[in-house]
Design a protein around this nucleic acid. Structure first.
Lengths: 226, 226
DNA sequence: GGGAGAAAGTGAGCGCGCTCACAGCCTCGG
DNA sequence: CCGAGGCTGTGAGCGCGCTCACTTTCTCCC
């Protein structure tokens, strides 16, 4: 798939003409990242936005003591690091390749030049950031008010909504996730996550086999999150 | 102070010409809110942005059981509710007047019409949202990784930085804050907040008198937050 | 100045989610 | 085929921040 084709599927660029997409494509650099490789660290000075062409990237917060929290999982067609295009502050999160990944990067100055002539892209970007603010606000709400059980349920429902496949016995979260990763998505420990995961498997609301999670009764699970 | 004068002090409008400010001013509605009055609730359908002309407004999350978390305190010249101008989603937070307040409101359609002809305002708004995303990300970091003690310290340092006055024996947070409110800013209970507040008073790093907090040794306090 | 209601101060006790520890599994590579 | 390292499953125990309960102090209005 050409760069231009990929760009045309990205929300902020979707109104652009073919020639504009070509122009933008010429500004991109491609690079492959190995599984586990860090794309940038919190605190780094960054000047690029990245677009996921292949693979998956996790946006992460880390603590001094090595704890981690995953804020988002990004797949093909998603982009990240956009804040660096809009101000000069250091990276506020880590970004790590969860699997081997091909990323396209776009430099701040190239983007700004492009943006000046395309106010509609700025409007799209406003919509993107708006959605991001709402999402992050929801994360704070959940972290502040919900207990472990409900946090797990929320995360599972969100994963299912994002990338769930309807299967024979419920909605399948296709992606392989270790319980550690799931825990980091919930802001819990692996042990607590395991406990509640097994609880819901026993109750028959979930199934869990080798990292593959199926929501057997998504609606009843929804009630659990209030 | 005229509407136009107030607008000219607001970051997203600060580049505008006098006549543009007048034009914008004509779109504003003014209203007074009593102390404690709710400006909007989470979940409301909202179409307006608000500018604080007088008084103070708290941006808040609430839980089913009546718990509250304060995300931000806004003073004269600050604005809020801007997300409603950029998409059609319901309000993601509550907004409440902490003291009697005069607010100016700007309707979505008026703003959009204005924005179309003023791309530089869109750029400013991008910068504002970027800062907001960074701030909220920091809140998640603190809520996830810090204990009660450190959370309190972080909040006090942020308050001091925002609105601290250098005084005789340290940086004074001029604003009166009850310990309940401080607790809601920290994501703690009043009791825990009281415990750590008194701890630092005993240690001589803080003083607390009738809601007025003074950071006696701001730098030593800074070390406490790691 | 007196009284009511809010805010502050404080301690007892508890429970949730954490840490720690360890045993079974699975997956690969040598 | 075996061994090492990672993931899963699970229980014991603990500690932080919570709830609850109460007293003291402040504030402000009549």
């Amino acid at each position: 798939m050409s760069y231009a084709q990929l760009l045309s599927r990205i929300s902020i660029f979707e109104e652009l003409q073919a020639e504009e997409l070509e122009q933008l494509s010429s500004l991109l650099r491609s690079r492959r990242y190995a599984k586990g490789e860090v794309i940038f660290h919190q605190g780094d000075v960054g000047t690029a936005l990245y677009i996921v062409r292949k693979g998956q990237v996790a946006i992460r917060l880390s603590s001094e003591e090595g704890k981690e929290a995953i804020l988002a999982l990004l797949d093909r067609g998603d982009f990240f690091g956009e804040l660096a295009l809009l101000d000069e502050e250091p990276r506020s999160t880590d970004a790590v390749a969860r699997e081997e990944a091909d990323l396209l990067s776009l430099q701040r100055e190239d983007f700004r030049r492009f943006l000046k002539e395309r106010p509609e892209v700025a409007m799209r970007l406003l919509a993107t950031l708006t959605r991001l603010v709402r999402r992050v606000t929801q994360l704070i709400h959940d972290a502040t008010f919900l207990d472990a059980r409900a946090r797990l349920v929320r995360v599972l429902l969100e994963l299912a909504q994002q990338q769930g496949q309807p299967g024979a016995d419920g909605v399948v979260i296709s992606q392989r996730l270790t319980q550690s990763e799931l825990a980091n998505l919930c802001g819990l420990t692996r042990e607590s996550t395991n406990k509640w995961l097994r609880f819901y498997v026993r109750e028959g609301l979930l199934s869990y086999e080798g990292g593959k999670i199926t929501l057997v009764k998504p609606d009843r699970l929804g009630q659990e999150a209030e």
